[in-house]
């Protein structure tokens, strides 16, 4: 049986996945396909984080261990994407800049929720 906090976090990720998918469909219907593709990247981040968190049960059954595991992964993602963003800016790669910024925005939002739920135990 998962704790209430875990359930809240998973529900949040599911709900954001659905709402971003709706935004994507709205953008496609509005003939804004490139921006819809950026939203697909955002959806993907919520799904990846959910997958990692669910898989963390293989690392440990302890909630605190699972939370630390995810925190480490999120930090790693942030460092990687920040470095990709810097590289894209150096090369004036406008497409990659938007893609990396979208990833980092989604990640910041997830980390914010994550902190609100488990802040005191991190």
């Amino acid at each position: 049986m998962e704790s209430e906090k875990i359930q809240t976090f998973i529900n949040y990720l599911d709900q954001r996945t659905s709402s971003v998918q709706e935004d994507t469909l709205r953008l496609i219907a509005d003939n804004r396909r490139d921006e819809a593709n950026f939203e697909k990247i955002r959806t993907n981040i919520f799904q990846i984080v959910k997958t990692i968190f669910q898989a963390s049960v293989r690392v440990s059954q302890e909630e605190s261990e699972r939370v630390r595991f995810l925190d480490t992964k999120l930090t790693l993602f942030q460092e990687t994407w920040e470095s990709h963003l810097t590289e894209a800016k150096e090369h004036g790669d406008d497409l990659k800049i938007v893609q990396e910024q979208t990833r980092l925005e989604a990640l910041a939002e997830i980390r914010d929720t994550f902190q609100k739920i488990w802040g005191e135990s991190l």
Partner: peptide, 13 residues
């Protein structure tokens, strides 16, 4: 009502 990065992307295209 778009981000500057998105506008830059469109302007590049």
């Amino acid at each position: 009502n778009l981000t500057p990065a998105t506008i830059s992307f469109h302007l590049r295209k």
